[in-house]
Each structure stands twice: as structure tokens, then as C-alpha cells.
Nucleic acid binder design. Structure first.
Lengths: 196, 196
DNA sequence: GCCTGATATTTGAAGCTTAAAACAAGCCGC
DNA sequence: GCGGCTTGTTTTAAGCTTCAAATATCAGGC
């Protein structure tokens, strides 16, 4: 497989490491990926935490509400809860509660879809739109301040690399999901005596 | 009201854009940073979500518990709750509850520090260590699978760029914290009639 | 029209998370 | 050795989040 880490670790290796040492050192094969992931996670946790803090301090609003409003502001025609759920990558049940509170506070308007009686279409109210506009201006400045350490070329390079990782992550997730679906199908057939 | 029905608002529009349009387009100055942040956030959300799902599916464990155990496995002499809180970048109160549940399940051992009677020192139990070892092996493979799309050079480049962003983020956060502290000091002086 | 499977949403239980307030104990300068 | 500040932890209230189960509706095939 990927022998990237210049496989010169072959030579000695007399006594196989015991479990303990293995577990502690073990990053063995994939240390680089693990470090990358940890740095990525640390960074987004830092930024997210700071944005959360500032939103609360300056506007007394929570980050999830801001995020939801950010989705809605780009959809003047409204979105269904499912749409929001997919875009925000959170569960359906989560969105239900979030929307409930935003309707309560008058930022969001919710009505049954005219074409699908199962679905709710939600939109920002005028108040919601105004509130979001005010927040978005500062939010953007915060992000620019925090991510401002790169020049245009670096920024573009980073964007590209993140895109590449995103693609391979997507692939890994999809492959896993397919495998799970397949397994479920098989089990189901086995259980019900489906096509042998 | 909202003339959503595709007004084909392209052609005319002679007048300078109003607030609405501005707000929508406004990424104006800092569009690149905003896009970068969104991509970063999307990526870490994707990975984190998948790891969470797999940990639950394979080991019936939550991600925060895994993360806490990952901190402890590297500290055979134990850590205080505060240490953990800082390393995980979560609130103190959060750690209290998390540790409570891990002690309950027998993965973690907790005792009062011998040198500071305020502090609790926590360690993995043998069971906790064994359980973590098993999980860590798969976890590492998952990460390698998801982040596997880069060659060594790209990986290193990404690491460097993330480091750079992390540094500038750190700077921005610290500057803000200092400003807040300063403001608090000033207010406090004003209120109590401190040094003019 | 009726069944079957898919989709949209809600609900409930459990757990995670934060912020803020309350304590307890350490540290320090006088 | 006593105030006063700092640090370590817990507690509480509110909100976020997930998963899984329950509802309701839709869409197709027959």
C-alpha cells in the first residue's frame, strides 16, 4: 500500500513491541493523517468557539441560530426543514427545535408547503433578515481577522487542498454507507428468506 | 410581498444596489476568507460526524468519551480536570459530567490530588486503557481512509498552511481577550472610583 | 382505489455543551 | 496569619444534538 513514509523501518525490529508500546507509538502507519486531522479539528474548534462567544456577547444569539439564518438568507423562496437539515449537516429533529425557537423569537416564518402537505417551508421574517444582516457584517470581519494570515496564493492553495481532502472524505463516507446498506439488504433477505 | 417567482431581475436594475442586495452580495472584501472558513468547517463537520457514527456503531461509545480517553492515554500519571478541559477546549463543567460518566462505566479512575486538595487527578483504568487501544486502532484507519487523498508533499503543505492559519487565529483571539480584559479593568475602576 | 416503500417531520430519552454563579483551597504580600 | 486574588471544581439552567421510534403524506405499480 502507500509506502510513503520511506519504509526503512524494515531493518531491525527484532522483538515485536508489546501491546502497550504499540498502542502508544502505533500511529505507525498513519501518523501524518492523524496529525493533520487533529490540527484541522483544533483549528475549527478554535474558530467556532470564538465565533460562538462573540455572537453571544455582541448579539446575544447562539451559533446554531446564526447558522440557520445564514442558510435562510440565501433562500428568499424559503427552504423545507429537510433542506436545512441537509445543508447544515445536522439531524432532522435538531432542526425542528431550532426552528421552533426562531419562530418563537420572530426571526423565522413557517408555513405548510402548498405542494406537499408533509413539508414546512420556512423563511426569514423582515426582522430576521435585518438582524442577520447586522450580524453578518461583523461576522465576516471576524473571520477575515482570524483567517487573515495567508496571502492570496496560500489562500488558494489551502482552498484547493481542503477541497481535495473533502473529496476523499466524501468518497470514504459514501463507500461506508453503501457497504452498510448492502449489509442491511443482505440481512433482511436472510431473515425473510429472500432470494438465496 | 416577496416577488420570489423569478422576476428575472437581471437586465434593468440601473439603480445602485440597496441594502438588501448589498447584504447578500457583500462578502465584498473578505469573500475568500469566508469561503475558506466554510470549507474548513464543512470538512471537519463531515469527518467528525462520520467518526462519531462509527464509534457508536462499532463500539457503542460517544465521541466526547473517546476524545477524553485519548487525552488520558497519553498521560499515564494522570491529569487534572482543568488540564483536560484546556486540552479538549471545552468548559470545566462539561468535563465534570463527562468524567462522572466514565468513572461510572469503569473506564476512568478519579482521586483527589495529593498536592492540591482542590484538584482531582484522573487516569484510565486498565479496562479503559484496553478499550481505548481497541478503538484507537480502527479510529486511526478511518482517519487515514478519509484523509488519504493527499500525497506526502500535499499533506505537508496542508499541515503548514493550517499551522499558519492557526497562528493568526490564535493572535486574533488573544488580542480580543486582552481588549476585553482591559475594558473590564477600566469599567471596574470607573465603578469603584479607582485611580482616575 | 389499495398496497408498498420512500420522504418530511415530530417526539422522547439520553447525553453533550455552555455560561454563570457558587464554593473550596491555594498563593501572596504585608 | 490575614485579607484578597487566583485557580480547580461543581452546580444549575438553558439550549443543542443525536438516535430511534412514531406519524403523516406522497408516489408508483397494479
Amino acid at each position: 500500500m502507500h509506502d510513503r513514509v520511506s519504509v526503512d523501518e524494515t531493518a531491525p525490529e527484532p522483538v515485536p513491541l508489546d501491546h502497550e508500546a504499540k498502542a502508544l507509538e502505533a500511529p505507525a502507519e498513519h501518523a501524518a493523517e492523524l496529525r493533520l486531522w487533529l490540527r484541522l479539528l483544533t483549528l475549527s474548534t478554535m474558530i467556532e468557539g470564538e465565533v460562538r462567544r462573540r455572537l453571544r456577547e455582541r448579539f446575544d444569539v447562539t451559533l446554531p441560530r446564526f447558522d440557520l439564518m445564514a442558510q435562510l438568507v440565501r433562500a428568499p423562496d424559503g427552504m423545507t426543514l429537510s433542506d436545512v437539515s441537509k445543508r447544515m449537516m445536522v439531524s432532522n429533529g435538531n432542526v425542528t427545535g431550532l426552528v421552533e425557537r426562531l419562530v418563537e423569537s420572530g426571526h423565522v416564518d413557517r408555513r405548510v408547503s402548498q405542494t406537499d402537505r408533509r413539508a414546512q417551508v420556512i423563511r426569514l421574517t423582515e426582522e430576521g433578515r435585518a438582524a442577520f444582516r447586522a450580524m453578518a457584517v461583523e461576522h465576516e470581519a471576524w473571520i477575515a481577522e482570524m483567517l487573515g494570515g495567508l496571502d492570496a496564493g496560500e489562500s488558494e492553495a489551502l482552498m484547493g487542498l481542503l477541497g481535495k481532502v473533502k473529496a476523499s472524505t466524501r468518497t470514504a463516507i459514501d463507500a461506508n454507507a453503501r457497504a452498510r446498506t448492502e449489509e442491511a439488504r443482505t440481512n433482511s433477505n436472510a431473515g425473510t428468506g429472500g432470494p438465496r
